[in-house]
């Protein structure tokens, strides 16, 4: 049994300690906002916050989370970055968006008013195949400016 917080709620998870967090979130806790993209931490679709840091949940084994605090996109919603994404229609298929929202939120916590270059650098662990990057960067800069 491994205990950690998910969106502020204490959870006791009875699963193989090697189980990646992503499966626990999606299948045991019904939190679908983190998406499976590659299983290797290389695309960013599954990002969550662990103790405030944006990390891939697909290759984070649950044993490493004992006593920690996990926040998923559901725990963040509604966030100004999400509203900015809607305002800018900053998505096409949307599959990469929730992971990007997590990294963007963590960036704005560290650095409330980033410029376009800083945002792009901060999102370099995330892939978007539809080509919505420009709109997303614009949305995040705007959320920082208005926030």
């Amino acid at each position: 049994m491994i205990s950690f917080l998910v969106n502020g709620v204490p959870r006791e998870v009875d699963a193989d300690p090697e189980t990646p967090l992503l499966y626990v979130l999606r299948n045991d806790l019904g939190l679908m906002g983190a998406r499976f993209g590659c299983g290797l931490g290389l695309c960013g679709a599954c990002f969550v916050h662990v103790d405030g840091v944006a990390v891939p949940s697909c290759d984070t084994p649950i044993w490493s989370l004992a006593g920690k605090s996990v926040v998923t996109v559901e725990g963040l919603t509604p966030h100004p970055v999400q509203q900015a994404f809607l305002d800018e229609q900053a998505a096409q298929c949307g599959y990469c968006v929730t992971g990007i929202v997590m990294s963007a939120a963590a960036l704005l916590d560290r650095e409330p008013h980033p410029d376009e270059r800083r945002v792009a650098e901060a999102l370099d662990r995330h892939l978007c195949r539809c080509g919505s990057q420009q709109r997303m960067v614009r949305a995040i800069v705007k959320a920082g400016r208005d926030g």
Binding site: R26, N27, L31, M32, G33, A34, R35, F36, T72, V73, E74, T77, P78, Q82, F85, L86, Q89, A91, C93, G94, Y95, V97, T98, V101
Partner: peptide, 20 residues
């Protein structure tokens, strides 16, 4: 505005991968 984007941006189940 796109009808499907709120679900996708707020992380609600919407994709086939989310079907249970």
């Amino acid at each position: 505005a796109r009808l499907d984007l709120p679900d996708k941006i707020f992380g609600r189940p919407r994709y086939i991968q989310d079907m249970r």
